[in-house]
Computed example of a mutant assay.
Amino acid sequence: MTPERSDDEEWSDLHGGVRPSPVVRGWLRMIRVLASGPIIRIPPDALSVAGVLVLAGAWAAVAGPGWPAAVVPLVLLAGVLDGLDGAVALRTGRARPLGAVVDSVADRVGDLLLGAILVTIGAPPAWVLAAVALVFLLEYVRARAQAVGMPGVGAVTVAERPTRLIVVAMAAGGAATAPAGLPALGWGWGVTFAVTWTAVGVVGMGQLLLGVRRTIPPTFPPTR
């Protein structure tokens, strides 16, 4: 009888053998507890779509009545749903290639909504476009490297999805508590965190390229 694999082992396998940090281990424990309750009956694809709808609601809360404070809990909820879809799929044996595609598309739509939230808060569209373009480029490079034989994700970078969620939540929280922004810089919260997101994206791209160089096979596997 094959022993049940731990959350840490499964996460490590999915991320190219990288061991999870204490923060990630705590996150995995929380997701496991949530995925063991009634939510396990919800189809994983529905959880992926729900995460997108929650982010759409966060954008609407700012664009409509102007409630940036509502963005913070909604973005955190979207992050939880983003973790739950994969956890539920694994625990119920419903993980499948199509589900991975749905999850990936939902993540990219979610990234666009995160950018829209920053623009609505006051970020210059050019900075947001640069930040989101880096996300799409990073994920494209990762997908192409995996297609030619790279195991796992190549590298867990500083620009992964949790960082993007945190950046937007901090921008919204700042806009809710101190609308004037950062007087020392003369920047509003939108531009501050759009620049932050872009800078993190540049660093993350560098980390991924190093990971691809380190882990990708030097030649294509032989064909029969």
Rank of each mutant, 00 (worst) to 15 (best):
L14C: 04
P20L: 12
W11I: 15
V141E: 04
S12W: 13
V49W: 12
A171L: 03
V141Q: 02
Q207W: 14
G190T: 09
V109P: 08
V202L: 15
I40D: 11
R142F: 05
G83Q: 09
V168I: 10
L165F: 14
V102P: 00
Q146A: 13
L210S: 06
P162A: 03
T223I: 07
A123W: 07
P218K: 09
M30R: 08
V203D: 03
G37M: 13
T223M: 06
P68R: 02
L165R: 09
Q207D: 09
A159I: 03
V101F: 11
G188Y: 12
V153G: 01
A130N: 04
R19H: 12
G86T: 04
G211T: 12
S6V: 02
A180N: 05
A60Q: 08
A60T: 13
G57P: 12
L182K: 11
A87C: 11
R41C: 10
S48D: 14
W189P: 05
E10I: 15
R91Y: 06
R144P: 04
I39P: 13
W59A: 07
D107F: 09
S36F: 08
R32T: 14
T177G: 05
T163M: 13
V128H: 05
E139W: 07
P218M: 08
V33R: 14
G115V: 00
L55D: 10
S12P: 09
E9R: 11
M1W: 14
G17A: 13
G173D: 08
A133S: 12
S36Y: 07
W59D: 09
P97H: 05
L84C: 04
G154H: 11
F136L: 14
S21P: 03
D13H: 15
G204S: 09
L84Y: 13
T120F: 02
T196N: 02
I216Q: 10
V135S: 09
S21Y: 05
G204R: 02
G86A: 08
P125M: 02
V203N: 06
G206V: 11
R91M: 06
A116K: 00
I121F: 03
G64H: 06
R91H: 04
V72G: 01
P124L: 03
T120R: 14
V195N: 07
R108F: 00
G154R: 12
A172V: 11
G149M: 06
D85T: 07
G181E: 12
G174P: 05
G186F: 13
V109G: 01
R142L: 14
W27E: 02
D103W: 00
T192M: 10
P179V: 10
A175G: 06
V18D: 15
I39M: 15
L129M: 04
P125H: 03
L208P: 10
V33M: 14
V132R: 00
V54G: 02
S104P: 00
V119E: 03
G66E: 11
I166A: 14
V109F: 09
